Amino acid sequence: MKNKIFSKVVVPFAICLLIAIALYPSAILNPEDYSTDGIDLEFDAPKQYAMVTKKEKKEDKVFTPYLGKSFEAFKEAIAFKESQGNYFTVNTYGYLGKYQFGKETLKMIGIHNPTYFLNTPELQEKAFIANTKRNKWILRKDIKRFVGKKIGGVEVTESGILAAAHLAGAGSVKKFLRSYGKTNFADGYGSTVRYYMKRFAGYDTSFIKPDRRAKVTI
């Protein structure tokens, strides 16, 4: 029955509409004359494209595309914690961009123009990769020694170590691990090595290869 209605009503109507648009384009399809009031616009998106909810705090809900525990998820999770993903922000301590880099750290990976860095998203993404490679090289022995153990009530993972190094520097992470949690660096906003190790645990950071001399090129 539906097929008969479609062939006898819908198809002729569509043909007439196309002819009308071709002959009188100015008289057809003025967006201001149309409304979606009363129309059911609900639909089911495929699961792989759906948005999932993660809780930053009990009272706050953060909506992000589901990336699982991939390296992209790791990178974007750190970015959201650091700056809510804003490439062009500078915090009260002068840390720059999406991943909140300090100027001295930027110099170590070959970036000497903070203004250009702040206004170049591609450079910021490359800086995150380079700095993480460098930290992984510095911490390679500690990763081998401590991953899988519990320190300060937190299970140590490679991604947790690398996230904490982004926050506090590789040296502070070494002190935390080798003191078995007794030395726990906190930044100016109160975020600690232990907190970052717990919050960013379990991501796949195998993409990152240790590189002592990692530099940014663009």
Rank of each mutant, 00 (worst) to 15 (best):
K2I: 13
K4Y: 12
K4Q: 13
S7W: 09
P12A: 14
F13D: 13
I15T: 15
L17C: 12
L18H: 00
A20F: 09
A22V: 08
Y24E: 05
Y24T: 05
P25I: 03
S26T: 02
L29N: 13
P31L: 11
P31F: 09
P31T: 09
E32Y: 13
E32K: 15
D33W: 08
S35Y: 12
T36H: 13
D37K: 14
D37L: 12
G38Y: 11
G38H: 10
G38W: 09
L41M: 14
E42G: 03
D44T: 12
P46S: 04
A50T: 11
A50G: 09
M51L: 15
M51R: 09
V52M: 08
K54W: 00
K55S: 11
K55A: 08
E56L: 14
E56T: 12
K61A: 09
V62I: 12
T64R: 14
P65M: 14
Y66K: 14
Y66S: 12
L67G: 06
G68R: 04
G68M: 06
F71P: 00
F74S: 01
F74T: 01
K75L: 06
E76I: 01
I78L: 09
E82F: 06
S83I: 06
N86G: 03
N86L: 13
F88W: 06
N91H: 03
Y93A: 11
Y93Q: 08
G94H: 15
G97T: 01
G102L: 05
K103A: 10
K103E: 14
E104M: 08
T105S: 15
L106K: 07
K107F: 00
I109Y: 06
I109L: 10
G110N: 07
N113I: 05
T120E: 10
Q124T: 02
E125A: 01
E125Q: 01
E125G: 00
A127C: 04
A127G: 03
F128E: 01
I129P: 00
T132Y: 00
W137M: 07
I138W: 10
R140G: 00
D142V: 04
K144C: 05
R145I: 08
V147Y: 03
V147A: 08
I151D: 01
I151V: 12
G152M: 05
V154T: 10
E155T: 07
E155W: 00
T157F: 05
E158P: 01
E158D: 04
E158A: 08
G160K: 04
I161C: 07
L162D: 08
L162K: 05
A163Q: 05
A164H: 02
A165M: 08
H166M: 10
L167R: 06
A170E: 08
A170H: 10
S172Q: 15
V173Y: 11
F176N: 03
R178L: 11
R178W: 12
S179N: 09
S179Q: 11
Y180L: 07
Y180A: 01
Y180R: 11
G181T: 01
N184F: 10
A186L: 02
G188Q: 11
Y189H: 07
G190Q: 07
G190F: 10
M197N: 03
M197P: 03
K198L: 06
F200R: 04
A201W: 02
G202R: 04
S206F: 03
I208T: 04
D211W: 06
T217A: 12
T217L: 13
T217E: 15
T217D: 13
